[in-house]
Write a protein that binds this DNA or RNA. Structure first.
Lengths: 357, 357
DNA sequence: GGCACATGTGCAAACGTTCGCAGCGACTGT
DNA sequence: ACAGTCGCTGCGAACGTTTGCACATGTGCC
């Protein structure tokens, strides 16, 4: 193993100079620096992370805690984190909590302990562990907490895009198939729903659920949606849409002729179904990237703060508890179509109401 | 931050004893050990990974290098690795090479340097870096090299299952839509193809390709497959099958009435299509787990070998260069059906030939 | 020409842990 | 009863790096 000593000997300087030449190049004369760097990569020197972490107090490693690494959603976020971390010269320590809240709490604690900060994805446990959260910066994805920074996708905005799209196609009665009750994302979307409901007149919005966020949940939702009399439906994610479309077909309801469907997430599943799904797209890689950027910013210039508030972004006037939102965009595919003609009278009624406004 | 010193003080022993009580419990008297462990988790002590890694020479961390973390295939393998590593008390340092061979080589080098060993998934680069490979154990997934341990899915066995299934349905002319030319997996499958071709008589096997291992590759393959006159086709993976089924339908060839399709991998994509795909399933989580087990075994009891062969599993008579194979199983769904009747004469012909044998 | 000052470099002390070595008591065999 | 042994524990030195401090040299100013 080649160490600073070897490089120092080769370059004819002391180990301090080597260390400085590589970590704080401006503190060293240009000629010396070049000699050092030349020697370093001639010998193939790579600094020992353990040693530097030990002395400097920061490990140049971030933790990434997800409920399920094999879930394409988290996998995409993880990729964003990994990519950005590498850009910042940070390593990624990845942990899978297996959807278990108790395990998650334990792993969070250990992850925080051996990294400089953690990106916590869609936490399943309520995080109240003050001593864990106080010590190092933690960025939470798809969740809001008073004590940490957070990022999330703009579910409210996404819902509004979806509703506007359906409205433009003439739909006036639109159902929403909700996800897990305690989910922040679901809350965001329901909030967006009421917001757009207040804005666009003559619209009847039918929030349903909670349903499980998978194909089976879609199966269960299908009956309720059909019974609701809605001509269009927005689903919590792609998988729910898949289940819903399939079961609806079994009930004799064709998509998109009889029922328009807009899903959330726009994973590649959306492109595989027949018809392909119109979906609210969020760039999950970007979600991971933004989370990492936020974390890096919180790590900031402070080399090692033993305690106290994690480095506040001083020029940012926004409440740090408000999640940074990654914008949503609507990708229109084959699962949405103009509202079926039988609903024309209803559309006419609502149009007249709109004239009143 | 709570250190061994704090625990030692609380337990009334020296720091050496604390260290031993936690890392080599058998070297310490039972009473003392209990006092130490009690003090340790009363104070919430967690050993500092950097310090222990520095002194002990092993980091208790494994590296995981994948071409694309957001690819569900690798995500599943990654989950297996993460799970098993946790079981062994190891951390996972994850790196995404973004499908770039040059980047992969560089990242491999750095990953090897700061972990105890690396699981390298489906390498895109030829790994010839002797000094990298010599120093720490590396387990390669889906690849065979002379210098490292490896695991892979039993593609040859999988092909044979697929062919037998199709043969039993009366198919006699079966195409194979191959993946990337240099791919180990593709090689395995072609080998399985010739093996089963030699075993079952009256069978015409039509290897095609290489094709890109995605939906577009399937699109391109469709025409060739239809032109080949095969009544059944085996595809390199699910996505290829999706593309193939879709384009075949456009050409007026219905699956499974006119053409039976068996895909590889059995990701959840296989369940989402219409018809759902008959697919050769490999437990990817298990692939990751086996890789990790192999790595742990190579890490073995040896605390820190500076150089030389990575600890050989002494009781294992098999050539360590032979990949450990994870078995494949066939999951039968809707994309396979009895061979269309026009091929009956051919089936009869081959049946008569079989009588000869 | 001497003084303050900036700039570049080296020395040595940490960081928290592990582990070789030695000491110390208790137990065993003769 | 005494030497030898063994089980348990503490001392202190590493591991490779960073960084405060001191020192040497060169530069500008009055």
């Amino acid at each position: 193993m080649v160490t600073v000593h070897d490089v120092a000997r080769a370059a004819g300087v002391s180990i301090s100079t080597v260390s400085r030449a590589l970590t704080a190049p401006e503190k060293v004369a240009t000629a010396t620096r070049e000699r050092v760097t030349a020697a370093a990569d001639a010998l193939g020197y790579l600094p020992n992370r353990a040693a530097s972490g030990l002395r400097a107090g920061r490990t140049r490693t971030v933790g990434l805690l997800v409920p399920d690494l094999s879930n394409p959603y988290f996998a995409a976020v993880a990729k964003g984190v990994a990519q950005r971390a590498r850009g910042h010269g940070l390593g990624v320590f990845v942990v899978d909590s297996e959807e278990d809240p108790a395990l998650e709490a334990e792993l969070l604690r250990s992850a925080v302990h051996q990294t400089d900060g953690v990106v916590l994805c869609s936490p399943r446990a309520v995080l109240e562990d003050r001593d864990v959260l106080g010590t190092k910066p933690v960025v939470v994805v798809n969740h809001r907490t008073a004590r940490t920074l957070s990022v999330g996708s703009d579910g409210a905005g996404g819902v509004q895009l979806a509703v506007e799209h359906l409205h433009a196609l003439g739909h006036r009665r639109i159902a929403y198939v909700g996800g897990p009750a305690r989910s922040w994302s679901d809350g965001q979307r329901r909030a967006g729903l009421t917001a757009v409901g207040a804005r666009l007149e003559g619209l009847e919005l039918v929030p349903l659920g909670p349903f499980r966020p998978d194909v089976d949940g879609g199966h269960e939702a299908a009956g309720v949606v059909v019974a609701s009399g809605a001509t269009a439906v927005i689903t919590f994610n792609d998988l729910v849409a898949v289940g819903l479309v399939r079961r609806a077909a079994a009930l004799g309801v064709q998509v998109p002729q009889d029922l328009s469907v807009v899903s959330f997430d726009d994973t590649f599943v959306a492109t595989l179904t027949t018809p392909p799904l119109t979906s609210v797209h969020t760039d999950l890689r970007e979600l991971g990237e933004r989370a990492t950027d936020l974390l890096v910013q919180a790590l900031g210039p402070a080399p090692a703060e033993p305690t106290g508030a994690p480095g506040q972004p001083e020029a940012d006037p926004a409440d740090p508890a408000d999640p940074v939102l990654v914008p949503a965009e609507l990708v229109v595919r084959g699962s949405t179509a103009p509202a079926p003609t039988p609903s024309v009278p209803r559309a006419a009624a609502s149009a007249s109401r709109r004239d009143d406004a």
